[in-house]
Design a protein around this nucleic acid. Sequence first.
DNA 1: TGTCTATACTTGTATATACAAGTAGACTGT
DNA 2: ACAGTCTACTTGTATATACAAGTATAGACA
Lengths: 233, 233
Amino acid sequence: MGKPRYTRIKEHIIRRIDTSRWKAGDRVPSENALATEFGVSRMTARRALQELGEEGLLVRTQGLGSFVADARPMSSMLTVRSIDEEITARGHQHRAEVLLLEAVPAERTNALLLGLGEGAEIFHSILLHWENTLPLQYEERFVNPRFGPEYLSQDFTVTTPSHYLSSISPLTEADQSIEAVTVDSEIGRALQIKRGEPCLKLNRRTWCQRGIVNISTLIYPGSRYRIGGHLNF
Amino acid sequence: MGKPRYTRIKEHIIRRIDTSRWKAGDRVPSENALATEFGVSRMTARRALQELGEEGLLVRTQGLGSFVADARPMSSMLTVRSIDEEITARGHQHRAEVLLLEAVPAERTNALLLGLGEGAEIFHSILLHWENTLPLQYEERFVNPRFGPEYLSQDFTVTTPSHYLSSISPLTEADQSIEAVTVDSEIGRALQIKRGEPCLKLNRRTWCQRGIVNISTLIYPGSRYRIGGHLNF
DNA sequence: TGTCTATACTTGTATATACAAGTAGACTGT
DNA sequence: ACAGTCTACTTGTATATACAAGTATAGACA
């Protein structure tokens, strides 16, 4: 029913920041000052300041005080969801077609990145993901057998590589990039697009604690897909 | 020097999750249980659990307990920085060329989105951003005069539209999308790319508390630019 | 069988208190 | 003039306590 009291204090401070009454760099009242002003204990006032600090609106330094943070820079984020979730969330039907599923010797690929020796085997898969009757994503992966030993025996018309890999080992990190490319005729045929049509290409490396789990490239036709994101500063 | 005690408890829990001793869905000990186990007060144990909840490793529900969260889905983020920061961060020279800077009547544009009446004026700018001797970004903006009244008199060879707008009014939200496109000959000539070369197109709408501040589209040649991001799950 | 209640547990909020640790400025003594 | 110290204020950590509120289960009762 009634909001907790520390939210009142937070709202009070946010209001003063939004209306520019307190500007970037200004000192906001101390925990004790807010406590007496609002008639609460210091720990309650503290909680308000602390959460605002975690949310990035304030910068707090021991011994000095709490200050209004600089306006956040325009840099922001784009989210990339798992393809099957995204399609089913739209109420459409997702189907995965396995174009290739094999073990290849390490020297033929970028296995060095995976931290394996020369002769080692590496798993390689190519899937095509359909939304209803149109192909939407061409997915190629190289998987480290250490972290996904049963990869080749999975039925990817039921699960997806992404689900399998994240169920096997807790993923801790990833880096990725996105670029605009044109694709060769083989991929273009699979995706049923015209020659020269621009595509989004998403390269991703995923890590668990002990090494790289997989390297994947996802390709979307530019005319059928956009990556979207909403962001609260 | 010595870490605070609640971090010990956090590390203890994280260890058990990372080594799969506690798996997704498992219940972790209650605040009171941890308190007696570690010989601390409940509020200290609570802090450990609470922070882990905020970090997404645990899901806490009142009355039930704290549970290990599902492995985070593969969805992740791509960061988009301000173009001038990015170029200068690479140690290169950034230069902005103003191709157009004007006020246009609202009906000619998507001014409805900006929440303005028919006859209102709207600011329109096109800039080309150079990295050393190569054009890297074609930037087109429609700006709401209410939130950037001095927009037309800015010298964008010194500042950037992004800097000006975020200095004027505190930006609270944005949504954006990215797609792969080919561009018309005018933009292609400006960017010095061949006909049909794929480009990344980034559409963004930025909001402050009281309405849409601006609508912008950024276009990068696919061969010269990729959006990158690193992520800790 | 089904429903309501009591109870035991959980997390959430709030207070009062104590001490630790970092910062700035004033005040000291040389 | 300068260096060191002391003080006042800040945030950080930790405890003990109390009550509120949500959940599930066991048991009483119709």
